[in-house]
């Protein structure tokens, strides 16, 4: 298609592009990714390489076969691949990230219409899928297992926050994920209210309905809470577009996470909570629209 130049306003455009946003997300993930390799070794790097390359390949092949524009250049498949790797423990066999990526890209993303059209977070859905398929080969972090039966984990809160623990390779270091989150907030890529409200809700609920006062910080730093709150719950496509809607989403996801952890739905709860809220994003937007426009022409709408 020919470029349409200078025919009509706007004649200038903000420099933000999808690719730039995705590149920022990848940049924000680098500290956690480096930590993963340092802590878990070369296997972590292999998992990341496998999931990223499979994601990119799947997207490219699908779009080519479906005769659509190949959008691999917008880096969103790279981001999905990285998220999938982050959600897997280092014990995962090599075929696990491949399975996860194929499912995430082909079924959850492309089959729903590609970037901007998917209902569910592809990376989360991919990780959940392989956790269900290869349950025995993908252990949860020992902290989650301990908390679920009411015991304190073996390591200190400091270890949990910094990432000197076991668990999925990208989820362990709450500290480095926060650093990434601060970077994304500073670059205006994500809405700061979502991670704050998500983690805040889990914190508030663990204070209001405590198992044990000592658990609260473990609760926050274990599992994929920070990963989910900073990177997954802030995914533009699958979350509400309105400010209030995002806050509702974050609080809902936090509440569901806590409920699932306490009532045994899942040891971690975060992935399922976010996926459940993904389903409700459209409805939340409808209710939380900043201006109530009455049906009809809309011109009689009140403010």
């Amino acid at each position: 298609m020919n470029a349409i130049k200078a025919d009509g306003a706007p004649f200038i455009k903000s420099p933000e592009t999808v690719r730039a946003m995705m590149a920022d997300v990848v940049t924000a993930m680098i500290p956690a990714a480096v930590w993963a390799v340092w802590r878990f070794g070369a296997k972590a790097l292999l998992l990341m390489a496998l999931s990223v390359s499979t994601s990119v390949l799947c997207e490219g092949v699908f779009e080519y076969i479906a005769k659509k524009r190949v959008t691999v250049g917008d880096l969103s498949a790279v981001v999905t691949g990285m998220f999938i790797a982050f959600g897997l423990p280092v014990e995962a066999p090599w075929y696990v990230p491949v399975f996860a990526s194929v499912f995430a890209i082909i079924i959850v993303k492309c089959a729903f219409g590609g970037l901007g059209a998917n209902v569910f977070n592809p990376a989360l859905a991919g990780v959940v899928f392989v956790r269900l398929c290869f349950r025995s080969r993908l252990p949860y972090s020992s902290a989650l297992t301990a908390l679920a039966v009411g015991k304190l984990p073996e390591y200190s809160v400091y270890d949990a926050a910094v990432g000197l623990t076991d668990g999925a390779i990208g989820e362990v270091s709450a500290m480095l994920l926060t650093v990434g989150g601060l970077y994304l907030i500073a670059r205006s890529v994500i809405d700061w209210r979502v991670p704050v409200l998500f983690v805040g809700t889990v914190a508030a609920l663990s204070v209001l309905f405590p198992q044990n006062a000592a658990y609260i910080l473990y609760e926050l730093f274990s599992g994929s809470l920070f990963l989910g709150a900073v990177f997954m719950a802030t995914d533009p496509t699958t979350t509400p577009v309105t400010g209030v809607g995002r806050c509702v989403f974050a609080v809902g996801a936090g509440a569901l996470t806590y409920v699932m952890r306490r009532f045994g739905g899942d040891l971690d709860g975060v992935a399922y909570a976010i996926l459940a809220m993904n389903m409700l994003s459209g409805t939340i937007d409808r209710i939380a629209a900043p201006r109530q426009v009455r049906s009809g022409t809309g011109t009689e709408a009140g403010k």
């Binding site: 470029a3 349409i4 130049k5 706007p10 004649f11 200038i12 970037l115 533009p236 309105t242």
Partner: peptide, 18 residues
Amino acid sequence: DVYERRGADVCIRCGRCV
């Protein structure tokens, strides 16, 4: 410096327009 609109565009539902 004039913005050149490419034929293809994609809404990623980021909400900046909102």
